[in-house]
Nucleic acid binder design. Structure first.
Lengths: 209, 209
DNA sequence: TGTACATCAGTGAACGCGCGTTCACTGATGTAC
DNA sequence: TGTACATCAGTGAACGCGCGTTCACTGATGTAC
Protein backbone atom coordinates (compact mmCIF):
# COMPACT_ATOMS: atom_id res chain seq x y z
CA UNK A 1 0.00 0.00 0.00
CA UNK A 2 2.88 2.39 0.82
CA UNK A 3 2.57 4.88 -2.05
CA UNK A 4 5.77 6.03 -3.70
CA UNK A 5 6.88 9.51 -2.64
CA UNK A 6 7.39 10.42 -6.31
CA UNK A 7 4.83 12.56 -8.03
CA UNK A 8 3.18 10.41 -10.70
CA UNK A 9 2.85 6.63 -10.99
CA UNK A 10 5.05 5.43 -13.81
CA UNK A 11 4.12 2.81 -16.27
CA UNK A 12 7.08 0.65 -17.12
CA UNK A 13 7.27 -1.43 -20.24
CA UNK A 14 7.56 -5.10 -20.07
CA UNK A 15 11.10 -5.82 -21.05
CA UNK A 16 11.99 -9.41 -21.79
CA UNK A 17 8.56 -9.76 -23.37
CA UNK A 18 9.03 -10.28 -27.05
CA UNK A 19 11.99 -12.48 -26.24
CA UNK A 20 11.35 -15.06 -23.58
CA UNK A 21 7.64 -14.71 -23.10
CA UNK A 22 4.80 -16.60 -21.63
CA UNK A 23 3.93 -17.46 -25.22
CA UNK A 24 7.16 -19.39 -25.55
CA UNK A 25 6.30 -21.37 -22.46
CA UNK A 26 2.90 -22.26 -23.88
CA UNK A 27 4.51 -23.18 -27.19
CA UNK A 28 7.03 -25.37 -25.39
CA UNK A 29 4.27 -27.16 -23.50
CA UNK A 30 2.33 -27.66 -26.72
CA UNK A 31 5.44 -29.07 -28.39
CA UNK A 32 5.96 -31.47 -25.49
CA UNK A 33 2.45 -32.80 -26.03
CA UNK A 34 3.52 -33.86 -29.53
CA UNK A 35 5.74 -36.53 -28.02
CA UNK A 36 4.81 -37.01 -24.37
CA UNK A 37 1.61 -37.93 -22.56
CA UNK A 38 0.01 -35.27 -20.42
CA UNK A 39 1.21 -36.88 -17.22
CA UNK A 40 4.83 -36.26 -18.19
CA UNK A 41 4.29 -32.55 -18.72
CA UNK A 42 5.96 -31.16 -15.61
CA UNK A 43 6.98 -27.63 -14.83
CA UNK A 44 10.62 -28.61 -15.16
CA UNK A 45 10.05 -30.43 -18.44
CA UNK A 46 8.38 -27.36 -19.89
CA UNK A 47 11.25 -25.16 -18.70
CA UNK A 48 13.78 -27.55 -20.25
CA UNK A 49 11.88 -27.54 -23.54
CA UNK A 50 11.67 -23.76 -23.49
CA UNK A 51 15.37 -23.47 -22.73
CA UNK A 52 14.92 -21.63 -19.45
CA UNK A 53 15.29 -22.54 -15.79
CA UNK A 54 12.37 -23.83 -13.82
CA UNK A 55 11.85 -20.83 -11.50
CA UNK A 56 11.57 -18.48 -14.51
CA UNK A 57 8.17 -19.92 -15.23
CA UNK A 58 6.69 -18.39 -12.10
CA UNK A 59 7.05 -14.91 -13.61
CA UNK A 60 4.46 -15.96 -16.17
CA UNK A 61 2.32 -18.73 -14.68
CA UNK A 62 1.27 -19.79 -11.23
CA UNK A 63 1.34 -23.48 -11.96
CA UNK A 64 1.47 -26.17 -14.60
CA UNK A 65 -2.33 -26.12 -14.55
CA UNK A 66 -2.32 -22.50 -15.66
CA UNK A 67 0.03 -23.32 -18.52
CA UNK A 68 -2.18 -26.18 -19.62
CA UNK A 69 -5.20 -23.91 -19.53
CA UNK A 70 -3.36 -21.61 -21.95
CA UNK A 71 -2.41 -24.59 -24.12
CA UNK A 72 -6.06 -25.60 -24.21
CA UNK A 73 -7.08 -22.15 -25.39
CA UNK A 74 -4.44 -22.05 -28.13
CA UNK A 75 -5.19 -25.59 -29.24
CA UNK A 76 -8.92 -24.95 -29.47
CA UNK A 77 -8.10 -21.99 -31.70
CA UNK A 78 -5.87 -24.24 -33.83
CA UNK A 79 -8.66 -26.78 -34.14
CA UNK A 80 -11.12 -24.12 -35.15
CA UNK A 81 -8.77 -22.90 -37.89
CA UNK A 82 -8.42 -26.44 -39.19
CA UNK A 83 -12.18 -26.91 -39.23
CA UNK A 84 -12.76 -23.58 -40.95
CA UNK A 85 -10.28 -24.22 -43.74
CA UNK A 86 -12.28 -24.00 -46.94
CA UNK A 87 -13.39 -27.52 -47.75
CA UNK A 88 -12.81 -28.84 -51.24
CA UNK A 89 -15.52 -28.29 -53.83
CA UNK A 90 -18.67 -30.29 -53.35
CA UNK A 91 -22.20 -29.95 -52.05
CA UNK A 92 -23.13 -29.16 -48.46
CA UNK A 93 -23.12 -32.81 -47.39
CA UNK A 94 -19.65 -33.32 -48.83
CA UNK A 95 -18.41 -30.18 -47.12
CA UNK A 96 -19.83 -31.39 -43.81
CA UNK A 97 -18.15 -34.75 -44.22
CA UNK A 98 -14.87 -33.06 -45.11
CA UNK A 99 -15.07 -30.95 -41.97
CA UNK A 100 -15.80 -34.02 -39.85
CA UNK A 101 -12.88 -35.80 -41.45
CA UNK A 102 -10.59 -32.91 -40.55
CA UNK A 103 -11.76 -33.15 -36.97
CA UNK A 104 -10.85 -36.82 -36.89
CA UNK A 105 -7.52 -36.14 -38.58
CA UNK A 106 -6.65 -33.51 -36.01
CA UNK A 107 -7.37 -36.00 -33.24
CA UNK A 108 -5.25 -38.63 -34.95
CA UNK A 109 -2.27 -36.38 -35.68
CA UNK A 110 -2.19 -34.65 -32.30
CA UNK A 111 -3.54 -37.30 -29.97
CA UNK A 112 -2.23 -35.88 -26.72
CA UNK A 113 -3.37 -32.38 -27.56
CA UNK A 114 -6.74 -33.78 -28.49
CA UNK A 115 -6.88 -35.70 -25.23
CA UNK A 116 -6.08 -32.52 -23.36
CA UNK A 117 -9.07 -30.80 -24.97
CA UNK A 118 -11.59 -33.62 -24.74
CA UNK A 119 -10.08 -36.39 -22.63
CA UNK A 120 -11.55 -35.15 -19.43
CA UNK A 121 -8.43 -35.12 -17.31
CA UNK A 122 -8.33 -31.37 -16.90
CA UNK A 123 -11.96 -31.17 -15.94
CA UNK A 124 -11.88 -33.79 -13.25
CA UNK A 125 -8.56 -33.28 -11.60
CA UNK A 126 -5.83 -31.39 -13.41
CA UNK A 127 -7.31 -28.01 -12.70
CA UNK A 128 -8.98 -28.31 -9.32
CA UNK A 129 -10.53 -25.69 -7.10
CA UNK A 130 -11.50 -23.19 -9.74
CA UNK A 131 -13.81 -20.26 -9.31
CA UNK A 132 -17.29 -19.99 -10.74
CA UNK A 133 -15.99 -17.32 -13.12
CA UNK A 134 -13.44 -19.74 -14.51
CA UNK A 135 -16.07 -22.38 -14.97
CA UNK A 136 -18.25 -19.98 -16.90
CA UNK A 137 -15.31 -18.87 -19.02
CA UNK A 138 -14.40 -22.45 -19.72
CA UNK A 139 -17.93 -23.17 -20.84
CA UNK A 140 -17.20 -20.75 -23.70
CA UNK A 141 -13.92 -22.38 -24.66
CA UNK A 142 -14.31 -24.61 -27.64
CA UNK A 143 -17.75 -23.27 -28.52
CA UNK A 144 -16.33 -21.52 -31.59
CA UNK A 145 -15.02 -24.80 -32.93
CA UNK A 146 -18.39 -26.40 -32.28
CA UNK A 147 -20.16 -23.61 -34.14
CA UNK A 148 -18.27 -24.52 -37.30
CA UNK A 149 -20.00 -27.88 -37.16
CA UNK A 150 -23.40 -26.30 -36.58
CA UNK A 151 -22.79 -24.00 -39.55
CA UNK A 152 -21.96 -26.86 -41.87
CA UNK A 153 -25.06 -28.75 -40.80
CA UNK A 154 -27.17 -25.62 -41.36
CA UNK A 155 -25.85 -25.53 -44.92
CA UNK A 156 -26.97 -29.11 -45.41
CA UNK A 157 -30.43 -28.24 -44.14
CA UNK A 158 -30.61 -25.19 -46.41
CA UNK A 159 -29.61 -27.26 -49.41
CA UNK A 160 -32.19 -29.85 -48.44
CA UNK A 161 -29.62 -32.57 -47.82
CA UNK A 162 -30.37 -33.13 -44.15
CA UNK A 163 -33.63 -34.00 -42.46
CA UNK A 164 -32.47 -32.31 -39.29
CA UNK A 165 -34.96 -30.00 -37.65
CA UNK A 166 -32.63 -28.89 -34.89
CA UNK A 167 -29.13 -28.21 -36.12
CA UNK A 168 -27.81 -27.51 -32.64
CA UNK A 169 -29.04 -30.76 -31.14
CA UNK A 170 -27.99 -32.82 -34.15
CA UNK A 171 -24.58 -31.16 -34.27
CA UNK A 172 -24.15 -32.06 -30.64
CA UNK A 173 -24.96 -35.67 -31.52
CA UNK A 174 -22.53 -35.51 -34.41
CA UNK A 175 -19.82 -34.12 -32.18
CA UNK A 176 -20.47 -36.91 -29.69
CA UNK A 177 -20.11 -39.46 -32.47
CA UNK A 178 -16.94 -37.94 -33.85
CA UNK A 179 -15.38 -37.75 -30.43
CA UNK A 180 -16.33 -41.32 -29.66
CA UNK A 181 -14.76 -42.48 -32.89
CA UNK A 182 -11.59 -40.43 -32.45
CA UNK A 183 -11.21 -41.62 -28.89
CA UNK A 184 -11.99 -45.31 -29.32
CA UNK A 185 -10.00 -45.74 -32.51
CA UNK A 186 -6.98 -44.69 -30.55
CA UNK A 187 -7.82 -46.62 -27.38
CA UNK A 188 -8.85 -49.80 -29.15
CA UNK A 189 -6.85 -49.87 -32.40
CA UNK A 190 -7.11 -53.66 -32.46
CA UNK A 191 -10.91 -53.63 -32.59
CA UNK A 192 -12.08 -54.69 -36.06
CA UNK A 193 -13.44 -51.28 -37.00
CA UNK A 194 -15.89 -51.46 -39.89
CA UNK A 195 -14.42 -49.56 -42.82
CA UNK A 196 -17.51 -47.48 -43.50
CA UNK A 197 -18.08 -46.58 -39.86
CA UNK A 198 -16.98 -42.97 -40.16
CA UNK A 199 -19.16 -42.35 -43.19
CA UNK A 200 -22.20 -44.11 -41.75
CA UNK A 201 -21.85 -42.40 -38.39
CA UNK A 202 -21.82 -38.96 -39.98
CA UNK A 203 -24.76 -39.78 -42.24
CA UNK A 204 -26.87 -41.14 -39.40
CA UNK A 205 -26.20 -38.38 -36.91
CA UNK A 206 -26.42 -35.51 -39.39
CA UNK A 207 -29.56 -37.12 -40.80
CA UNK A 208 -28.19 -36.90 -44.30
CA UNK A 209 -30.42 -38.27 -47.00
CA UNK B 1 19.33 -75.14 -14.58
CA UNK B 2 21.26 -76.71 -11.67
CA UNK B 3 18.93 -79.58 -10.72
CA UNK B 4 18.43 -80.23 -7.01
CA UNK B 5 20.31 -83.28 -5.74
CA UNK B 6 17.14 -84.50 -4.05
CA UNK B 7 15.11 -87.21 -5.67
CA UNK B 8 11.84 -85.59 -6.72
CA UNK B 9 10.87 -81.96 -7.33
CA UNK B 10 8.56 -80.83 -4.61
CA UNK B 11 5.55 -78.69 -5.18
CA UNK B 12 5.08 -76.27 -2.37
CA UNK B 13 1.79 -74.59 -1.67
CA UNK B 14 1.46 -70.90 -1.85
CA UNK B 15 1.21 -69.80 1.73
CA UNK B 16 0.09 -66.23 2.34
CA UNK B 17 -2.23 -66.62 -0.63
CA UNK B 18 -5.76 -66.46 0.64
CA UNK B 19 -4.68 -63.75 3.02
CA UNK B 20 -2.68 -60.99 1.48
CA UNK B 21 -2.97 -61.82 -2.17
CA UNK B 22 -2.46 -60.19 -5.51
CA UNK B 23 -6.24 -59.93 -5.58
CA UNK B 24 -6.15 -57.58 -2.61
CA UNK B 25 -3.66 -55.39 -4.42
CA UNK B 26 -5.91 -55.21 -7.47
CA UNK B 27 -8.89 -54.47 -5.24
CA UNK B 28 -6.94 -51.71 -3.51
CA UNK B 29 -5.99 -50.14 -6.84
CA UNK B 30 -9.61 -50.35 -7.97
CA UNK B 31 -10.73 -48.70 -4.76
CA UNK B 32 -8.21 -45.91 -5.25
CA UNK B 33 -9.71 -45.20 -8.66
CA UNK B 34 -13.00 -44.44 -6.94
CA UNK B 35 -11.47 -41.30 -5.47
CA UNK B 36 -8.22 -40.51 -7.29
CA UNK B 37 -7.34 -39.90 -10.92
CA UNK B 38 -5.22 -42.49 -12.65
CA UNK B 39 -2.12 -40.32 -12.46
CA UNK B 40 -2.14 -40.50 -8.66
CA UNK B 41 -2.21 -44.28 -8.58
CA UNK B 42 1.35 -45.01 -7.55
CA UNK B 43 2.89 -48.22 -6.32
CA UNK B 44 3.21 -46.73 -2.86
CA UNK B 45 -0.36 -45.43 -2.86
CA UNK B 46 -1.63 -48.88 -3.74
CA UNK B 47 0.49 -50.46 -1.00
CA UNK B 48 -0.83 -47.93 1.50
CA UNK B 49 -4.42 -48.62 0.46
CA UNK B 50 -3.83 -52.36 0.71
CA UNK B 51 -2.22 -51.99 4.13
CA UNK B 52 1.12 -53.46 3.14
CA UNK B 53 4.59 -52.06 2.52
CA UNK B 54 5.63 -51.01 -0.95
CA UNK B 55 8.21 -53.75 -1.62
CA UNK B 56 5.61 -56.44 -0.90
CA UNK B 57 3.94 -55.66 -4.18
CA UNK B 58 6.88 -57.00 -6.15
CA UNK B 59 6.05 -60.54 -5.04
CA UNK B 60 2.84 -60.21 -7.06
CA UNK B 61 3.37 -57.64 -9.79
CA UNK B 62 6.31 -56.32 -11.75
CA UNK B 63 5.04 -52.78 -11.96
CA UNK B 64 2.10 -50.46 -11.52
CA UNK B 65 1.32 -51.08 -15.19
CA UNK B 66 0.82 -54.77 -14.49
CA UNK B 67 -1.54 -53.95 -11.63
CA UNK B 68 -3.54 -51.61 -13.84
CA UNK B 69 -3.75 -54.31 -16.49
CA UNK B 70 -5.32 -56.56 -13.88
CA UNK B 71 -7.67 -53.77 -12.81
CA UNK B 72 -8.71 -53.34 -16.42
CA UNK B 73 -9.54 -57.03 -16.71
CA UNK B 74 -11.59 -57.05 -13.52
CA UNK B 75 -13.36 -53.83 -14.41
CA UNK B 76 -14.30 -55.07 -17.86
CA UNK B 77 -15.82 -58.11 -16.19
CA UNK B 78 -17.74 -55.83 -13.81
CA UNK B 79 -19.04 -53.80 -16.73
CA UNK B 80 -20.13 -56.92 -18.54
CA UNK B 81 -22.07 -58.08 -15.48
CA UNK B 82 -23.81 -54.71 -15.26
CA UNK B 83 -24.73 -54.82 -18.93
CA UNK B 84 -25.99 -58.39 -18.69
CA UNK B 85 -28.26 -57.74 -15.72
CA UNK B 86 -31.75 -58.63 -16.85
CA UNK B 87 -33.30 -55.44 -18.16
CA UNK B 88 -36.76 -54.49 -16.94
CA UNK B 89 -39.75 -55.74 -18.90
CA UNK B 90 -40.28 -54.21 -22.30
CA UNK B 91 -39.74 -54.89 -25.94
CA UNK B 92 -36.36 -55.39 -27.60
CA UNK B 93 -35.87 -51.69 -28.27
CA UNK B 94 -36.58 -50.83 -24.65
CA UNK B 95 -34.21 -53.52 -23.50
CA UNK B 96 -31.48 -52.15 -25.78
CA UNK B 97 -32.03 -48.64 -24.47
CA UNK B 98 -31.94 -49.90 -20.89
CA UNK B 99 -28.63 -51.62 -21.57
CA UNK B 100 -27.19 -48.48 -23.15
CA UNK B 101 -28.38 -46.48 -20.17
CA UNK B 102 -26.58 -48.87 -17.84
CA UNK B 103 -23.42 -48.37 -19.84
CA UNK B 104 -23.70 -44.61 -19.40
CA UNK B 105 -24.50 -44.98 -15.73
CA UNK B 106 -21.43 -47.12 -15.18
CA UNK B 107 -19.29 -44.44 -16.82
CA UNK B 108 -20.89 -41.76 -14.68
CA UNK B 109 -20.61 -43.60 -11.39
CA UNK B 110 -17.06 -44.88 -11.90
CA UNK B 111 -15.52 -42.17 -14.05
CA UNK B 112 -11.88 -42.98 -13.40
CA UNK B 113 -12.40 -46.69 -13.88
CA UNK B 114 -14.25 -45.96 -17.08
CA UNK B 115 -11.43 -43.69 -18.20
CA UNK B 116 -8.97 -46.47 -17.51
CA UNK B 117 -10.90 -48.80 -19.79
CA UNK B 118 -11.66 -46.42 -22.63
CA UNK B 119 -9.74 -43.22 -21.99
CA UNK B 120 -6.77 -44.25 -24.02
CA UNK B 121 -4.04 -43.54 -21.51
CA UNK B 122 -3.04 -47.15 -21.06
CA UNK B 123 -2.88 -47.81 -24.73
CA UNK B 124 -0.68 -44.88 -25.65
CA UNK B 125 1.70 -44.66 -22.79
CA UNK B 126 0.83 -46.29 -19.50
CA UNK B 127 1.71 -49.78 -20.68
CA UNK B 128 4.56 -49.29 -23.12
CA UNK B 129 6.75 -51.81 -24.83
CA UNK B 130 4.40 -54.76 -24.82
CA UNK B 131 4.74 -57.92 -26.80
CA UNK B 132 2.66 -58.88 -29.79
CA UNK B 133 1.07 -61.61 -27.67
CA UNK B 134 -0.08 -59.05 -25.16
CA UNK B 135 -1.49 -56.91 -27.90
CA UNK B 136 -3.48 -59.82 -29.27
CA UNK B 137 -4.70 -60.73 -25.80
CA UNK B 138 -5.73 -57.17 -25.19
CA UNK B 139 -7.71 -57.14 -28.40
CA UNK B 140 -9.91 -59.75 -26.70
CA UNK B 141 -10.37 -57.75 -23.53
CA UNK B 142 -13.67 -55.98 -23.48
CA UNK B 143 -15.06 -57.94 -26.41
CA UNK B 144 -17.44 -59.81 -24.11
CA UNK B 145 -18.96 -56.56 -22.92
CA UNK B 146 -19.32 -55.42 -26.51
CA UNK B 147 -21.06 -58.66 -27.44
CA UNK B 148 -23.84 -57.86 -24.98
CA UNK B 149 -24.59 -54.81 -27.09
CA UNK B 150 -24.53 -56.83 -30.31
CA UNK B 151 -26.91 -59.34 -28.74
CA UNK B 152 -29.40 -56.67 -27.74
CA UNK B 153 -29.34 -55.17 -31.21
CA UNK B 154 -29.86 -58.62 -32.72
CA UNK B 155 -32.99 -58.94 -30.61
CA UNK B 156 -34.26 -55.66 -32.01
CA UNK B 157 -33.64 -56.90 -35.54
CA UNK B 158 -35.40 -60.18 -34.81
CA UNK B 159 -38.40 -58.36 -33.39
CA UNK B 160 -38.42 -56.07 -36.41
CA UNK B 161 -37.68 -52.98 -34.42
CA UNK B 162 -34.38 -52.08 -36.06
CA UNK B 163 -33.61 -51.53 -39.72
CA UNK B 164 -30.02 -52.63 -39.14
CA UNK B 165 -28.64 -55.08 -41.66
CA UNK B 166 -25.30 -55.48 -39.93
CA UNK B 167 -25.62 -55.77 -36.17
CA UNK B 168 -21.88 -55.82 -35.65
CA UNK B 169 -21.19 -52.62 -37.58
CA UNK B 170 -24.18 -50.83 -36.09
CA UNK B 171 -23.31 -51.97 -32.59
CA UNK B 172 -19.83 -50.56 -33.14
CA UNK B 173 -21.41 -47.25 -34.15
CA UNK B 174 -23.66 -47.40 -31.11
CA UNK B 175 -20.69 -48.08 -28.85
CA UNK B 176 -18.87 -45.13 -30.41
CA UNK B 177 -21.85 -42.90 -29.72
CA UNK B 178 -22.26 -44.10 -26.14
CA UNK B 179 -18.61 -43.64 -25.43
CA UNK B 180 -18.61 -40.18 -26.96
CA UNK B 181 -21.57 -39.18 -24.82
CA UNK B 182 -20.14 -40.67 -21.63
CA UNK B 183 -16.81 -39.01 -22.24
CA UNK B 184 -17.96 -35.56 -23.34
CA UNK B 185 -20.67 -35.23 -20.72
CA UNK B 186 -17.94 -35.54 -18.16
CA UNK B 187 -15.36 -33.39 -19.94
CA UNK B 188 -17.79 -30.64 -20.89
CA UNK B 189 -20.50 -30.65 -18.21
CA UNK B 190 -21.19 -26.98 -18.91
CA UNK B 191 -22.13 -27.61 -22.52
CA UNK B 192 -25.90 -27.19 -22.96
CA UNK B 193 -26.59 -30.84 -23.63
CA UNK B 194 -29.94 -31.38 -25.34
CA UNK B 195 -32.15 -33.37 -23.01
CA UNK B 196 -33.16 -35.97 -25.56
CA UNK B 197 -29.63 -36.50 -26.87
CA UNK B 198 -29.13 -39.92 -25.30
CA UNK B 199 -32.43 -41.23 -26.59
CA UNK B 200 -31.98 -39.78 -30.09
CA UNK B 201 -28.39 -41.00 -30.33
CA UNK B 202 -29.39 -44.55 -29.52
CA UNK B 203 -32.34 -44.48 -31.90
CA UNK B 204 -30.26 -43.14 -34.78
CA UNK B 205 -27.30 -45.42 -34.39
CA UNK B 206 -29.28 -48.58 -33.66
CA UNK B 207 -31.57 -47.65 -36.56
CA UNK B 208 -34.62 -48.07 -34.38
CA UNK B 209 -37.91 -47.42 -36.06
C1' DT C 1 24.03 13.64 -25.67
C1' DG C 2 25.82 11.41 -21.44
C1' DT C 3 25.48 9.40 -16.97
C1' DA C 4 23.57 7.52 -12.85
C1' DC C 5 19.94 4.77 -11.39
C1' DA C 6 15.53 1.99 -10.96
C1' DT C 7 13.36 -1.95 -12.81
C1' DC C 8 12.67 -6.68 -13.35
C1' DA C 9 13.18 -11.16 -16.44
C1' DG C 10 15.77 -14.79 -15.74
C1' DT C 11 19.54 -17.48 -12.87
C1' DG C 12 21.58 -20.95 -9.86
C1' DA C 13 21.81 -23.07 -5.55
C1' DA C 14 19.24 -25.20 -2.22
C1' DC C 15 15.24 -27.35 0.28
C1' DG C 16 12.02 -31.14 1.45
C1' DC C 17 9.04 -34.64 -0.56
C1' DG C 18 7.18 -38.79 -2.58
C1' DC C 19 8.49 -41.81 -5.78
C1' DG C 20 10.37 -46.69 -7.54
C1' DT C 21 13.56 -50.00 -6.36
C1' DT C 22 17.28 -52.84 -3.70
C1' DC C 23 18.50 -55.58 0.01
C1' DA C 24 19.22 -58.33 4.04
C1' DC C 25 16.00 -59.73 7.35
C1' DT C 26 12.14 -62.09 10.07
C1' DG C 27 8.98 -65.01 11.45
C1' DA C 28 4.87 -67.73 10.38
C1' DT C 29 3.66 -71.80 7.53
C1' DG C 30 3.99 -76.22 6.03
C1' DT C 31 7.13 -80.61 5.27
C1' DA C 32 10.27 -84.51 6.23
C1' DC C 33 11.40 -87.95 9.10
C1' DT D 1 2.80 -87.57 17.47
C1' DG D 2 6.91 -84.53 17.95
C1' DT D 3 10.83 -82.00 16.33
C1' DA D 4 14.06 -79.91 13.30
C1' DC D 5 14.19 -77.58 9.11
C1' DA D 6 13.15 -75.45 4.43
C1' DT D 7 10.24 -72.16 2.35
C1' DC D 8 8.81 -67.69 1.27
C1' DA D 9 5.26 -63.62 1.99
C1' DG D 10 5.93 -59.56 3.88
C1' DT D 11 9.12 -56.01 6.48
C1' DG D 12 11.96 -51.94 7.31
C1' DA D 13 15.83 -49.30 6.23
C1' DA D 14 18.12 -47.20 2.70
C1' DC D 15 19.32 -45.38 -2.00
C1' DG D 16 19.15 -42.04 -5.86
C1' DC D 17 16.00 -39.31 -8.66
C1' DG D 18 13.00 -35.76 -10.45
C1' DC D 19 9.75 -32.99 -8.78
C1' DG D 20 7.73 -28.14 -7.15
C1' DT D 21 9.06 -24.26 -4.78
C1' DT D 22 12.02 -20.58 -2.18
C1' DC D 23 15.43 -17.23 -2.24
C1' DA D 24 19.08 -13.96 -2.85
C1' DC D 25 21.34 -12.68 -6.90
C1' DT D 26 22.75 -10.64 -11.57
C1' DG D 27 22.91 -8.08 -15.35
C1' DA D 28 20.55 -6.22 -19.35
C1' DT D 29 16.91 -2.77 -20.33
C1' DG D 30 14.87 1.46 -20.27
C1' DT D 31 14.21 6.16 -17.60
C1' DA D 32 15.25 10.63 -15.38
C1' DC D 33 17.73 14.50 -15.49
Amino acid sequence: MAAPTNHAPRTRNARGDGGRLGDEIVAAATRLLERLPEGSITLRAIAREAGITAPSIYRHFDSVGAILRAVIEVTFADLEVVLREPPPHGNAAERLEATCHRYLLFAQEHPEQYRLLFGGAWNASALPSEEAAERAERAEIGQDAFRVLVGRLDECITEGMSLSENSFADSAALWVGLHGLASLRRTAPLFPWPSELEHELIRSLARLE
